[in-house]
Write a protein that binds this DNA or RNA. Sequence first.
RNA 1: UCCUCAGUAGCUCAGUUGGUUAGAGCACCUGACUGUUAAUCAGGGGGUCCUAGGUUCAAGUCCUAGCUGGGGAGCCA
Length: 462
Amino acid sequence: MKRKRVKELLANPVTGEKVLVKGWVRTKREIKNVAFVALNDGSTINNIQIVMELSAFPADLLKDITTGASIGVTGILEPSQGKGQSVEIQAAEVILYGRCDPETYPLQKKGHSMEFLREIAHLRFRTNTFGAVMRIRHAMAFGIHKYYNDRGFFYLHTPIITGSDAEGAGEMFHVTTLDLNDLPHTKEGGVNFEDDFFGKPTNLTVSGQLNGELGALALGEIYTFGPTFRAENSNTPRHLAEFWMIEPEMAFWDLNDNMDLAEDFLKYLIKYALDNCREDLEFLNKMIDTALIERLEFVLANSFVRLPYTEAIKILEAVDRKWEYAVGWGRDLQAEHERYLVETHFKRPVILTDYPKAIKAFYMKQNDDGLTVRAMDVLFPGIGEIIGGSQREEELDKLTARIEELKLPLKDLWWYLDTRKFGTAPHSGFGLGFERLILFMTGMSNIRDVIPFPRTPRNAEF
RNA sequence: UCCUCAGUAGCUCAGUUGGUUAGAGCACCUGACUGUUAAUCAGGGGGUCCUAGGUUCAAGUCCUAGCUGGGGAGCCA
């Protein structure tokens, strides 16, 4: 007999039908003559109620049906006599696949703290919250591919291992096959990377952007979606050492086109979640963040504020308030400033543009004022910077001058500069932190709880 | 990395000014209950008080260092 997923069973219940379901027991309630088992198979947040007449099953089997045990149930789908569910399965046959010792199984039917669940990340998928978060995470990954595919963007796989240390986005993890206890040395005493696997020092990528630009300047519109690694000693609820990033890059698009894309893209994903993850969102709205759905609908319904950095500074300088970090043109905005603009002043997402060039990366397009670059950061309530992007500098002399000014290794970037030498074109792109998107979509408050296996300083368990 | 708070039963936490045998709720086990909904009711078992030093007649409680975790900041996505 073919097994049915609980999701399809509940979506399309045919009472009187004989069905087979398989899954994990969430709870069992036993009264005098009958036991009620809530069974979950991961396909949906909802459980199917299994009704077992105590007289019809061996006592040993009933004893083994505990929270966490895996079973298969064959029976007739019937309208439920009780409240709380419309249908239930009157069990005729129950197979026990795996026992689950209730004395040692760490998950209980009661709620657990996120901190505790993080210590048992291998089992936390079995909770309602992590089931919901992981299903939404999947839906967002799928929605991202669908969004770009439907718009003619090509999914470009940029390398995980890079020989370039010019990406300029923080500390990198080294990749080597050298024996760290017996390193080969050069005459000068340094490590001799000639003997290493690639014949030179290599690292894990901190961004696919530079490679993405190469693809865009031939394919037109591309996007990357892959893991990214930062060896920063960041200990916050918003940072991971290994995270996923989406980086679209578009030839012949300027900064305004770029902002239009960022806003449309984020709204598409919000709508996709509201349309496709309703039950999981409702669960999270009830248990994790009661303002979640309201906030998603609000962001979907309202346009983002677009504001040049210089105007933002004026707004912040006019506020009668003592900042922990001083506000002034040329200084980078701190979390408190961004939060004020998004959460207090505008009360909606804000896209800040045209930052001073000194506080932004070398590849950003220089404005005619000689002071600012065509950067854009999308700031979200509660999350802060969710997207960072820019129009890229496509003029070879300006880009070269900037690289030299910042004393970056010009010769290592010869391949990047070649795109400006041969048929250069204006182009733009941005990076969206996938886990930060999931934070926003789920109302979860710690980024370690929206990725299956978080990697953070001093933690690579599981 | 800096600031700050915390670490006591499987989980969440209480534990007074340092003072006899360290408590509660939930979970678990046993029993009761004619349809439950994180079922309910009664009973029972369960402790390296984070680790290492120190102060003291006496430390879960005070001091020092470390480890782990939370929150905030920086770096950023």
